[in-house]
Design a binder for these strands. Structure first.
Lengths: 241, 241
DNA sequence: CCAAAAGTGTTTCGAGTACACCCATGA
DNA sequence: TCATGGGTGTACTCGAAACACTTTTGG
């Protein structure tokens, strides 16, 4: 039957200057979980991850990155499967099977919060919602650890790769982009230096438009040049050697 | 039985200014393979990788990094298992099982070539030797791709992390360290700039000794300050943000 | 007219790069 | 004494960081 291989997706979203993660709440339990699923023996692992993302968010063609394989033997506590049976999450005949070691591949994705319309829970969970990274609920298994690892890798990769595409509207102001970086990095950045550095990456285009409506000076709107953006991800933004 | 999960280790060694990979030659075949093995359901994946490294090289406490999970459906060509049976690598009853999709976790290690005394082959292979990265033999499955991916990630990580520990003797000259970097990067570096930059990382200690015996000025010998070295790996050598 | 955000330029500092000469050693 | 590699310093350029005032907008 199952190959004993599952995937877990850490789906990051950004909203109101806060970094969010999409989580499922398990039926009849207080625990939450990452969206994921088992990988069929016939399917390629990476494409299954794409499917999970699609099932939960309705989004395709999103930056999705495999970042780690979690394969420790102590990923769940004794009695874990028992609890799942007791709370009706899985049928009793699967209890033993669920008590063995699981190997899970972690993926993370960056998606635009507003484009995800009413994320849908699956059969084993009764809600699917965005949770603030700074205020995560109790999570099953080692999902907390998986999220933290994804976050750590995301921050490290920020040094070599741009982010923003799929995390912001198609057109955005420089301040919005900066707010994204500040949120992910969890600290303030200098406005002037940020603008200069970001423009120097040569991945932005000025749309020529302005956003009006705020009680302030109307900002220019930019968009990503997707070709250059993807090239930057491929080649890295800098290399020391 | 098997969980359908295997590991493959790309073990890099460095010798005479060449980057080597430790490979096994399959019994009765012209194909070579990466050292690896299946992961028992009871075992943690990372520690199995440590075991593979130990079985082949006799080394423990070596930098070993999980770098990717290979989970495509087309990892081997049709007839692959059949060939393995025909050439006596596996018994016939396993043919069907060997024909399904395999998921393999890639690890890479950096070890000192000279410390590996006569690497030992396993039951399915008749030799285990170092092969030059620039002249790889034909490899089974997607092992060539795995090696190239490991190499690519190694080069990228060089921008954030030092290398050298376990790849060089305990004490080494600056030129030897530079030769290592030049080999991995596959290009020449400026001697003066290399020294300055490397010293600025603050991970080296001057042993106070010199190496004599060459027909030249005798070079200072350095060693890594392991505490600082590991801290540099943890924290990264630089951060742009 | 005022509050709030947008836009802009300069200086300072450190790291990266290019480059050339003298020194020590063993053969 | 000579060939070979070891050791060192300086000038230039560029990116990073610190820092303050003026402009635009809607309320």
């Amino acid at each position: 039957m199952h190959p004993g291989l599952s995937i877990d997706c850490v789906i990051f979203g950004f909203h109101e200057s806060e970094l969010k993660v999409l989580l499922l709440k398990l039926k009849n339990q207080k625990l939450w979980s990452l969206p994921g699923g088992f990988v069929d023996r016939q399917k390629a692992v990476d494409s299954e991850a794409v499917e999970v993302l699609f099932r939960r968010t309705g989004l395709r063609d999103i930056f999705l990155r495999q970042f780690y394989l979690f394969g420790d033997t102590d990923r769940h506590l004794p009695g874990h499967a028992n609890k799942l049976v007791a709370t009706d999450v899985i049928p009793p005949e699967l209890e033993n099977w669920f008590d063995q070691r699981f190997v899970s591949v972690g993926y993370y994705a960056l998606v635009e919060y507003s484009k995800v319309q009413a994320p849908r829970p699956d059969f084993s969970s009764d809600s699917c919602t965005w949770k603030n990274m700074k205020d995560l609920p109790d999570l099953m298994l080692d999902h907390e650890k998986i999220i933290q690892k994804a976050y750590q890798i995301l921050k490290r990769e920020l040094n070599d790769q741009p982010i923003g595409l799929n995390l912001l509207p198609d057109e955005f102001s420089m301040s919005e982009l900066q707010a994204l970086y500040e949120t992910v990095l969890d600290r303030k950045l200098d406005r002037r230096n940020f603008r200069r550095k970001m423009l120097s990456y040569d991945i932005l285009e000025d749309t020529g438009k302005r956003r009006t409506g705020g009680a302030h000076k109307s900002p220019r709107l930019y968009r990503f040049n997707e070709e250059k953006y993807h090239k930057a991800i491929e080649d890295g933004l800098r290399s020391l050697w």
